[in-house]
Structures are given as structure tokens and as C-alpha cells.
Amino acid sequence: MDASDDTGATAPGAGTPEPPAPRRTKKLVNAPDEVVADALRGLAAAHPRLRVDPRARLVVRTDAPVAGKVGLVSGGGTGHEPLHSGFVGPGMLDAACPGAVFTSPVPHQMVEATRAVDGGAGVLHVVKNYTGDVLNFRMAAELAEEEGLSVRQVVVDDDVAVSDSTFTAGRRGTGATLFVEKIAGALAERRAPLDAVADVARRVNDASRSFGVALTACTTPERGVPTFELGPDEIEVGVGIHGEPGRERRALAPARELVETAVEAVLAELPDPVDGPVMALLNGMGGTPLLELYVAYGDLVEALELRGVPVVRSLVGNYVTSLDMAGFSVTLCRADEEMLRLWDAPVETAALRWGR
């Protein structure tokens, strides 16, 4: 007779039971500790016009460095795709440094990326306002400058949900990062000088505000379980892109009410004029289908029209995500005529392309 029955339980007196099998993450991964390298190999295969180094964790546009052009470098923890690697290419970033999941890249990645894109006109670092990102990019800039490279940095801090959080001092950097990278990237493509590119990046950040809502938590490949708990009828209002807590936890409500909450929060902190035109990003967090995102975008436009705020440019989709989190974020930018012209300029990246 076997020492165990058909349930797998060990019979009395059969000795020490076998340890439980390790938890397997129900995700399309081979090994959690290899997920970043594996994803970068896939990115390289899908987009051969990018120079991708899965081990060094660098994504560089094929023609970099471009002589006489300001180079743009950004980066952050993996898990926010297509930010940042999906935005590398003509008209946007010159290089991206992906870190481990929800973890800042390290300074040597950033220095190597800076070297790779320096075409003699200097390099701009676009940094989301998270403590690790800010400290590591600052160190990288100092090391690059010791090598004789000219570097400027712009910190993106658009999330109005909280003024300070576990990961930041001040507002978190979220959806406005896309606006900053696209508009500054377009100006750099026109061979504008480094200070002018940094200036427009700061103006875009200053003119942008964001707010997010989570319907579910996300699950990292390493943990295999949700990063926080929400009841079946609970949502997190003002959530961060790493699952950081927001303003409050409340009961689920119709899309129109959730969008209204986001609009009120963003407009309360958006620079004047109150009724000026805006660029709008209705962003998915990674686990929300487009069907629902378009529902939310219709409600967003309606809410803004009722307030006399015209939407002059828009994007709907998953652009600044949080792995598989269900939910959305709203980013509005008070765009002036120069910003709109730069937004409309050609761009050719894995995740964003038009005008070519």
C-alpha cells in the first residue's frame, strides 16, 4: 500500500511529508527573475530597428547617436509598458533604461545610455518622481558630467492624488511622462539646443496633472499574489502606478462617477486658464479592455465639455500601466501652440507612431 492516499496526504507514520511545491505565477513568464531579459529579447525580435541589450537592460534607437541632436534618455521599473522602452525611436526617446519590476534602473545603465545617445549637443534625462529614480539619475548625471558630457534633468511630478507617498517626496510621476517625452523629443529632433529642450519638457510637466483609479490590484511575477487587497465592491481612488495607496478606498460606482472624481481632482490643480484647451490621455492600467476605456473617455469628454474645457488632442489606451491592474488614469495638459505643433510632429516608436 502507498504511503499516501489519492489526495496526496501523507499517511500516519510514513515519515516527514514532502515540502509543498513552489507557487507558480499564473502569468506568461518562464522564470520570474528572468522576465525583464525575456521581455527585452521579445522586444528586439518584434522591433529590429531598435538596439536592445537584454543583459545590460538598454533600449537604444538604431541611429543613435545622432550628430548635433540632443539625446533623450528615460527609464524606470519594468511593469509600466509601453513606458519607457516602447517610446524609443525618432521623435521621442533616444534610449530607455528598464529596471527590474517596479524597481529603478541603476546608475551605470543610465550612464551607458547617456554615452550611447550623446551626439555632441548634450543629453536630457526625463525622470519620474520616485525616490530611487531621482537619486540614481542624479548620480548618473554626475558621473556622465565627469566624463565631459553635458546633461540636464527634468523630473515629472504630475499625480495630484497625494502630495507625498511611500516612494516620493512630492507628487508622483505618471501619465504626463508620455507628454513630456513626446513633445521634448520632437523639439530635439529639430536640433534645438539642450536648454531649450529641457525648458519645453519642464513647461509640459508644469502644465500637466493626473489622477488614477484602481478596480483591482496588480500582481508582480515574483510574488504571484496581488500587491494589495480590495473587496469585491471596493476600489482605490488616487492609486499610484506601483499600487501605492491613494486618497481613499470607496465603493465601486459607475464609470461616469469615477471619471467625474478624476476630472475634479485634476482640474483643481491644473494651471489656469480654467477653461483653456487641453490634451487628454485616458490611460489604461494594463488590465482594462478598450471597450471600458472608451466608455470612460466618452464620460471624460462630456465632463470637460460641461465645464467649457475643449479637448484638442487625445490618446486612449494602455500607455503608462501597472502590470495587470484594472483601472484607469486621466492626464490633462494645458497645451500652448508650440506644444501642439510638437505633439503633431512625426514619431516612430514601437508604441506610438504617426506622421511618417
Rank of each mutant, 00 (worst) to 15 (best):
S4V: 10
D6H: 12
A11E: 10
G15T: 00
P19C: 09
A21E: 15
K27D: 13
P32K: 05
V36F: 00
P48G: 03
R49F: 07
L50F: 00
R51N: 14
R51D: 13
G71V: 10
G75V: 06
G89V: 11
M92P: 02
P98F: 01
S104L: 01
P105E: 11
P105K: 08
P107S: 10
G122V: 08
V126C: 08
D133E: 07
R138C: 07
R138G: 14
A141S: 15
E142Y: 06
S150Q: 14
G173N: 07
G175S: 14
G175I: 05
A176E: 06
T177V: 01
K182Y: 10
A188N: 03
D195E: 15
N205Q: 14
T216K: 10
T216V: 05
C218T: 12
P221S: 01
G224H: 00
P232M: 07
D233K: 12
E234P: 06
V237S: 09
I241F: 11
H242E: 12
G243S: 12
P245C: 11
G246M: 00
R247P: 01
A255M: 14
P273G: 11
L282S: 13
G284R: 01
M285E: 05
L291I: 13
Y294H: 13
Y294A: 04
A296N: 04
D299C: 13
G308K: 12
S322F: 08
M325D: 03
C333K: 00
L340N: 03
R341N: 07
R341W: 04
A345I: 08
G355K: 11
